[in-house]
């Protein structure tokens, strides 16, 4: 209440701001350091072809990372993003190839089916009070099983939809600016990230996501319809998985029903490396995108250096633990 308290408060505040910027900063510095390291110590890393490869490899994990970032900031977790992605790809395949409907309907179908699956997870969490870990673990298996059932366990090819490649591997940007061949899938990731960032930071929905993750009970006692916003968060996560499903199936020119398991862990890893707190209430989309890039740069760079495939997995694991450790150290100092 005194001026002294005020002074102290002011000081703590400035320390805090620099800390939260640092979190993102750390991930960014690590990314730059990796880029410099691999550029210097390998010949082909910085070649444009390879850069495109890296971006291409980041797109799916980046989009899934964005999906799960929303849920994690809201104080939950979504383990179903990988297999929901697969299921939405299968849905697109059924609509486009099996039913022969036009491309926009396929896109819509993939995103809508993702949103519905997400809403179901969200309802299980909000209304049935099932812990998010369990509810989405269940949804992970449900989506995986449904993808196999609907596809008859066989890949669905998009040969009848000639424009399907427009979604990911082709580059519309190269038509505008010759030479800048950034695949559309990568552009979609950036667009998704920008829109997600706006939703998270500029909208009522985003503000509720932070409030839920920081103190759900206080939000509830403030008269916030906590259940509704929670369900919406999971639904949004599912919808974004639908976008990831379109990107991956476009790149493979097929919906591969057996794919998907394990993608959720890579996505969560990207989120965590990007400085988003697994306990909720704190995090950024930019951090997640940086985190996704760190993972793909690492994989790509080590491959070029001739490091055995299995060791790359080990290194990724180490990076996750180190990133979280740095995060904890920074917060303890705050």
């Amino acid at each position: 209440m005194t001026d002294l308290t005020l002074d102290q408060a002011g000081k703590t505040k400035s320390a805090l701001v620099s800390t939260s910027t640092l979190q993102k900063g750390v991930a960014f510095v690590v990314l730059i350091a990796l880029l410099v390291f691999f550029s210097v110590f390998t010949e082909n890393f910085a070649a444009w072809n390879n850069v495109v490869n890296i971006m291409q490899a980041t797109a799916v994990n980046g989009v899934l990372g964005v999906a799960v970032t929303f849920v994690i900031i809201s104080g939950g977790i979504d383990l179903a993003v990988g297999t929901m992605m697969t299921l939405t790809a299968v849905m697109a395949g059924i609509i486009l190839t099996n039913l022969g409907m036009p491309l926009p309907l396929g896109i819509l179908g993939a995103m809508a089916s993702g949103a519905v699956m997400g809403a179901i997870s969200g309802t299980a969490v909000a209304k049935l009070k099932i812990p998010p870990f369990i509810a989405t673990l269940g949804m992970m298996q449900i989506a995986r099983g449904l993808a196999l059932v609907f596809s008859g366990t066989r890949p669905i090819y998009f040969n009848d939809t000639p424009n399907y490649g427009l979604i990911s591997p082709e580059s519309s940007l190269a038509l505008l600016i010759p030479g800048l061949e950034i695949p559309n899938g990568v552009m979609i990731m950036f667009i998704v990230a920008i829109i997600a960032s706006i939703i998270l930071n500029r909208t009522l929905f985003g503000r509720y996501i932070f409030a839920l993750g920081s103190n759900e009970e206080a939000a509830r006692l403030s008269g916030v319809n906590v259940d509704f916003w929670k369900i919406l968060t999971y639904a949004l996560s599912g919808l974004i998985c639908g976008i990831a499903g379109l990107i991956i199936s476009s790149r493979l020119n097929s919906a591969q029903p057996a794919l998907g398991l394990g993608y959720e862990l890579d996505a969560i890893a990207a989120v965590v490396i990007g400085g988003t707190s697994l306990s909720g209430g704190r995090g950024t989309i930019l951090g997640t995108i940086i985190g996704a890039f760190i993972m793909s740069v690492l994989t790509n760079g080590l491959r070029i250096m001739g490091v055995q495939e299995e060791w790359k997995i080990v290194v990724t694991g180490v990076i996750i633990i180190v990133a979280v450790f740095v995060d904890i150290m920074l917060r303890r100092r705050a």
Binding site: T203, L204, F205, A211, S214, N215, A218, V224, G281, R282
Partner: peptide, 28 residues
């Protein structure tokens, strides 16, 4: 039960009334 302490004074004062502080009930 009263505050979201990691959010700002402004966010907390307006928390129970957030929908009133939006453009077209979407953007804050």
């Amino acid at each position: 039960y009263g505050l979201v302490t990691s959010m700002t004074v402004g966010d907390n004062v307006t928390m129970a009334s957030w929908p009133r502080f939006t453009r077209s009930r979407f953007f804050m």
